[in-house]
Simulated scan of single mutants.
Amino acid sequence: MKLSKPLFAAVLGLTLTAPAIAAEYNANHFFSERHSMVRGPYVDWAQRVAERTNGEVTFRVFSAGSLLPPAASLQGLRDGVAQVSYHAGTYTPAELPIANLIGNMAFYNTDPMVMAFASTEFGLTNPAALQEWSKNGIVFGGGYSTSQYFMMCNKPVETLADVAGKRLRMAGGAWTRFAEHIGAVPVSIPSSEMYTGLDTGSLDCAVAAADALDSFSLKDVVTSMNTLEIGNYYAGFEWGYNKGFWQGLTADQRDVLFDEMAYELANHRVEFDADVTKAVSSATDGGMKIFEPDAALQQALAEFVVADEAALIENAKRRGVENPEQILTEFKAVVDRWAELLEGVDRTDTDALAELAKTEIYDPLDAETYGTN
């Protein structure tokens, strides 16, 4: 159920504010502060933004859903409850059909670095995407990508036959259809509920990035992990801004935000993958078994990737997207461009990656005009 704008603001005791009169603004994320998507891109980022703007743009970071629950982050951002927020597009398919269309292309290229940079460029420059953000009262600041999704299970799951009938936590959309394709039962729940599901037996596997073994303590309830790469998640945005707030900023302040988002776009990917390595190592030391997918499971995934594009297009049309085929073609071109740009680049060199994000994505933007329409 959606709250009306006046009621939403009244419940939280907040009102829309313009940068000229506000001393502190709200930054919202529903992951915990220790997660790589929060500690760098929100906590450290907010500190640097405050320093570089001499305190004129200061954010108070709310994490773990303490300001807005996941499903309400888009509305809360639009209504000014938060001035910047993370949002997972799967919660609002009707409001963000284009963001979900490209977000469900997660099987086209499963390189998280490529998809983080590509989804950011697309969200900042594609006319159809920009129109969608504006229609929702927000300004897109930058994207992200999780690391590859794996099956983390409380029982052995190695082969296609093993998956049959298993209850898999999925992120919705293409992941749900993939579960059905391989004969599993998709269960759509937030990441915060994965632990309980595995612990109580209502889930057999959680399909998510493997950092969740630590960040969501899944290593306590997981006994095996299958390394089939089941896409990676990047739908929505890592930074979206309330339109009124953004338009009240000066061009110099927007340039600071561009620079710091470029840095954290890179840093987040480096940190996320490092967290995955650490979490998997810790879990295997604790007894978790690693299974490679059998040939039948790999073949089933390959067949799904080819077949599912028609479902993506049909779903997008049903939600009112014009020319989804063209949008997917344009997105694939951006993905392929980033696959080339990142070829041979050290994936652990945050500064080099950040410079690439800055020069190729953010520097071409006009801080005077971006997000003002």
Results as ranks from 00 to 15, higher is better:
115 M>W: 06
140 F>W: 10
6 P>Q: 01
350 T>D: 01
13 G>H: 03
129 A>N: 04
264 E>N: 14
264 E>R: 12
93 P>N: 13
230 I>P: 00
25 Y>N: 13
299 Q>R: 09
90 T>E: 14
149 Y>L: 10
23 A>S: 15
334 V>Y: 01
62 F>R: 01
15 T>E: 13
206 A>Q: 02
45 W>K: 07
218 L>R: 02
337 R>T: 11
102 I>P: 04
184 A>L: 04
311 A>V: 08
162 D>H: 06
346 D>L: 00
209 A>T: 13
96 L>T: 15
363 D>I: 06
255 D>V: 09
262 A>Y: 11
55 G>L: 06
158 E>N: 04
36 S>W: 03
8 F>H: 15
235 A>D: 06
339 A>W: 00
145 S>V: 09
373 N>Y: 10
151 M>R: 00
16 L>C: 09
300 A>F: 00
166 K>N: 04
368 E>N: 15
144 Y>E: 05
323 N>V: 06
341 L>M: 11
43 V>P: 04
365 L>I: 10
67 L>R: 03
314 E>G: 07
207 V>G: 04
289 K>M: 01
248 G>E: 12
353 L>N: 02
214 D>R: 14
231 G>D: 05
66 S>D: 15
144 Y>R: 08
343 E>Y: 02
37 M>K: 06
116 A>W: 02
41 P>D: 01
5 K>N: 11
177 R>I: 04
104 N>Y: 03
345 V>T: 10
113 M>F: 15
166 K>L: 14
4 S>L: 11
274 A>L: 06
265 L>H: 06
158 E>Q: 08
50 A>K: 14
203 L>Y: 08
341 L>F: 04
320 G>K: 08
17 T>V: 14
36 S>N: 11
252 D>H: 08
172 G>P: 10
275 D>V: 05
105 M>L: 12
158 E>S: 07
60 R>G: 03
221 V>N: 07
225 M>P: 01
197 G>I: 04
324 P>D: 10
362 Y>M: 09
152 M>I: 00
86 Y>K: 03
68 L>V: 07
86 Y>H: 13
253 Q>M: 03
217 S>T: 07
191 S>K: 07
68 L>P: 09
150 F>K: 02
88 A>L: 12
323 N>H: 12
360 E>G: 12
124 L>N: 09
136 N>P: 05
361 I>Y: 07
339 A>P: 00
251 A>W: 11
88 A>H: 12
236 G>I: 05
293 P>T: 00
340 E>G: 10
360 E>D: 13
34 R>H: 12
156 P>Y: 06
252 D>W: 03
327 I>C: 07
163 V>L: 08
54 N>L: 09
294 D>K: 02
118 A>M: 06
58 T>E: 14
362 Y>F: 15
261 M>A: 11
27 A>F: 13
322 E>S: 14
118 A>P: 12
220 D>L: 11
274 A>R: 15
151 M>H: 03
108 Y>L: 15
67 L>M: 05
248 G>D: 05
283 A>T: 01
51 E>W: 01
149 Y>N: 11
63 S>M: 07
77 L>K: 08
